[in-house]
Design a protein around this nucleic acid. Structure first.
Lengths: 243, 243
DNA sequence: CGCGGGCTTGACTCACTTCAAGTTGTGTGG
DNA sequence: CCACACAACTTGAAGTGAGTCAAGCCCGCG
């Protein structure tokens, strides 16, 4: 059995058989998705969570005057829907950025989890906590950093996250996002995103060929902008005993 | 027994005696804090969560070049530390904005909670989810809204949140934040914050006397900027049965 | 083969920043 | 009770990072 949520969670702790079985049960359904297909629209009831198996998925929000912001980008292995679990209603749209596949499971399964395999509950809360840290980092960036640093932080963070699933196989990665998408994520216009990327290539910070990014001197760049990998080093010492 | 966390949680569901007792146990310790006193510095181990009983508390982050951003403002009744529960380490400083009082409890108590009173676990996860929604809203604002709208959204949101504890007693509220603090929250300079506030007074959107804010036509303003109260209407239908 | 989406480039504009000088309030020590 | 230092706010003038607008190019696709 090859579950990407099990893989994800085993980055934190190794699971017992009972826990693995529970996760497998959650992931039993699968839904194939096409590029641009919508998983959830603003205002929809959100009674499910999803594990993203393949493909990228993007959460968006809109202002009254029709401007659009990307609030979250999901990559394979990540848990989708923790932000809407409390209200049970979507305040953001969820749209596939590429073709892909999701495993939906009802919120009710999370409740069962708290009851029957409480350590998985603690794991889910930890994931929600990491999501918060990432959002707070972005708030810092949007509040006080310039366009070049924001782009740097975005690229370094994507590499951190891709490395979790990929075992850090490669320094080079594919970015299935247009300049406009990047702008909606970073708070810039598509035009300026183009100019920033061009500048970063000229400065030899990155190589960029056909939407494939290579970061040239990761550690130096990380130090320059004060980047930290928040996905490394989750502390599980306080978890309840496994079921 | 008068617990502000019980009050907070009973906004969502009414608790059983067992649940109330568990919460009371969590809140048994109390720590008085002075204005400017630090609860946690960046890099500290964060093995505790806190219920904020009185006073305001602010979470801050810093860029390498020494600029400061406010990532979260906490008001009485709120749960502090959910962002750091996963890593067990502070990436943000927590500083009292006013004199106040917190109730610390160990993360381990959350683990016990998952085990013994699973419905409280679901409640904590819901709170974490609302925190995420608020952070995402701020990302939308910082990404795509102008200074005046950001200030509007901030003031309306503070009123929403204060109303939870206060039972919406009064439309007028006290803001114990300097213009510089507001700027660190909204991504503006202290100088421009002053100008924006002055303009909002001139436009008769707010009254502002001695750091006391009155919002003049709440519903019209909320409509203009597309404001929604995310703290109303938490959906508890999926929770496990109470212990 | 034409059409539209995405990228580039350059000229112009503007919301917000920076800098500077002056005012007010306030806690503190003599 | 005063004086002095300091933090917070105000106002105005000048500067700038990023936005807007417009024109042209490339490429995949129907």
């Amino acid at each position: 059995m090859d579950s990407c949520l099990v893989n994800r969670l085993e980055n934190f702790v190794s699971l017992t058989t009972a826990e693995k079985e529970f996760v497998a049960y959650m992931e039993k359904d699968e839904r194939r998705m096409r590029r641009r297909e919508s998983l959830l629209d603003i205002g929809d009831d959100a009674d499910h969570l999803y594990v993203l198996k393949f493909g990228w998925l993007v959460a968006r929000s809109e202002t009254v005057d029709g401007r659009s912001a990307v609030t979250r980008i999901y990559i394979p292995g990540e848990v989708v829907g923790l932000a809407e679990i409390g209200k049970g209603k979507a305040l953001h749209s969820l749209t596939m950025q590429t073709d892909g596949c999701v495993c939906p499971f009802p919120r009710r399964a999370v409740a069962e989890m708290f009851d029957k395999v409480p350590r998985l509950g603690a794991l889910i809360l930890s994931i929600s906590s990491l999501d918060q840290l990432e959002l707070r980092r972005r708030i810092k960036e949007l509040t006080r950093m310039d366009a070049e640093s924001k782009m740097a932080s975005f690229l370094l963070t994507m590499q951190d996250r891709l490395a979790i699933a990929d075992a850090g196989r490669n320094r080079r990665f594919h970015l299935p996002l247009t300049n406009r998408d990047l702008g909606d994520y970073l708070g810039l216009t598509d035009i300026y995103v183009g100019k920033v990327l061009k500048r970063l290539v000229a400065l030899k910070r990155i190589d960029l060929v056909d939407r494939h990014v290579t970061i040239r001197d990761r550690s130096a760049w990380a130090k320059d902008i004060g980047h930290e990998n928040i996905y490394a080093g989750v502390d599980t010492s306080w978890y309840p005993d496994p079921a």
